[in-house]
Design a protein around this nucleic acid. Structure first.
Lengths: 182, 182, 182, 182
DNA sequence: TATGAATGAGCGTTCATTCAT
DNA sequence: GATGAATGAACGCTCATTCAT
């Protein structure tokens, strides 16, 4: 592990905690403690818990999109589609609570009257994936992207709810691949 | 309107409120006020906020399953499948926050070490729908039921997040129908 | 001392503390502790610190006006004027911080966008005293009431600032009496 | 505008802010930002927020006394008295929050056990004005100065509280002039 | 001289739950 | 059955001040 600066220590601790438990059960004091800094330092870098959570989310998605694009570099056709499906299912298996956290932060933005913060973020996510599917030769890529995104979020939730016992990941990947091809 | 007894007044008020806003932003005081009873009365009938929420969820799903079965009585084949899809999309359009509430209560159960409360509930939901799909001639009904449930939950969340602007409901119904048939 | 109910215990403790030190240096926890109740109980009776302070102020002024009117019952002419002056100077000597508290609560009302709460309160104070002065035969009673109110508030502040060493109360009463007569 | 040095930029920003809102709602961070310097620089020049506020107050009053003396240079008798009244009412109309600020800083000094800081300051203010009134031929100049100071502070506060609707400035000046002459 | 990162105590307020009546 | 008074822990956030650079 390399030495992180304070801001990154806070972001890392927050990312960990928000991946473990709900937004409203994660206190800023807890985040600060896990980061090994004071509450004051946290508020020095982030004006509010909401803004910290938003940065965490942006960080997670940017990292995911970056990794996705790297993976897709030398792939074409079905391999490209399978790579997207793989990447999405990694979200399910590695960050199953991401969908929940996504929703929580979105609701917080509504409560604070910052709903507009969101459109851009949400648009970026859908825009990137839809472009990829289109290039991979998927028919109706916009509609399929919406369907795919919803399906992945839903599967993540149910995976979470069932403790992973609800479905076999490889089987489900195959189903999703067929949907994209069909 | 018929006169409801105290317990039912509380359940109705809680159902309304949990359909409007998150579990953690709905206080028991608010539920009691909406029901027109005292907080004491609420705790007389329900040992905790969690248990009340669980009863609300059971009530919602039982009512939905009951309505679904009534609808399916005289239908066969594709009409049956379409009726299931219609019923699921009504959850999305009429109770878009149900998925979120579902998730919240589940997490509360984990926090309280009552995760076991859930298996039965979740199993009942999937069991019913899987049976219906099987009777309607859907191939691989168990796996398709899981996929369908996840997809509907995911669409509900995204419908909520996008303020309904993300997809056209009828188009998406058609996609889902094709998935079930494929 | 008779046994007070919880609400009155809170009001009494708050009145004491707000008379001792500034609004912003008096915490609700401190008020609750002095009253011998929990913070929760305080918020059970008063929706906010501001509203509690407002009730304290209303209580102080109502009590003062009541005592004033009782005193004036059987007096006429100059005796009436002297009684008003006496009552006002009692505010200075017994509750020298009242003016400061008055201002603090007023500013809080502005901050909370509740400025309207105030007009009624302020009007009641001026209305009562102006009516009394008019009946006592003072010329230009409205203008004199304003002047008198300002003078008393100012004297209270300076009395406070100087630790009581700035002026002799009886001498100053005489000056004020002359102003009202002039 | 001439270029100010850092210390004066801080003093100017603090003077502005303390004239706009209460001492306890004005943070040192806000002062530093308005001055365009760092918090560190602020604490380099002033050992505490309290000491900065005290310097602000001294600056305001010194400037006021200086302007007053300039104005009075070639005046005698009633014109002198009227000039003093004019200058005092300018405090009310142009810096209505000065009295409040005065009080706040005084209380802060008490809290910090620096009450002695104050006697000198307060004495200088009263001393100057009393000397002027005496030279203008006012009877009982010390007592009248106390009364005048209190009246002006009180009027400033009520002017503030009423949003300027409580009294007509010119009418009130006339009243005050009569009091000084009487 | 000047910076701004970092501290940590303190604030007003919310809330599920208990219990005497 | 039903009330609502009372609890107390927890929360997000602010702030004057210190200090290494």
């Amino acid at each position: 592990m390399k030495e992180l600066n304070t801001r990154d220590k806070i972001l890392r601790a927050a990312t960990e905690l928000f991946s473990e438990k709900p937004y409203h059960e994660t206190s800023v004091g807890e985040i600060a403690k896990r980061a090994g800094v004071s509450k004051g330092a946290l508020f020095h870098y982030f004006p509010s818990k909401y803004e910290l959570a938003r940065q965490v989310l942006l960080g997670i998605l940017d990292a995911w999109l970056k990794r996705l694009n790297e993976r897709l570099k030398n792939l074409t056709g079905d391999a490209k589609i399978r790579a997207v499906v793989d990447a999405l299912f990694e979200l399910i298996t590695e960050s199953p609570k991401l969908s929940r956290f996504f929703l929580e932060v979105y609701e917080e933005s509504l409560r604070l009257g910052r709903g507009a913060d969101w459109d851009e973020f949400y648009g970026r996510y859908l825009g990137s994936v839809s472009e990829i599917l289109k290039n991979a030769g998927v028919a109706n890529p916009e509609r399929k992207t919406v369907l795919l995104g919803a399906l992945v979020d839903g599967l993540a939730l149910h995976h979470l709810l069932s403790g992973g016992r609800l479905f076999n990941v490889e089987d489900m990947k195959e189903e999703v691949f067929r949907i994209l091809k069909g």
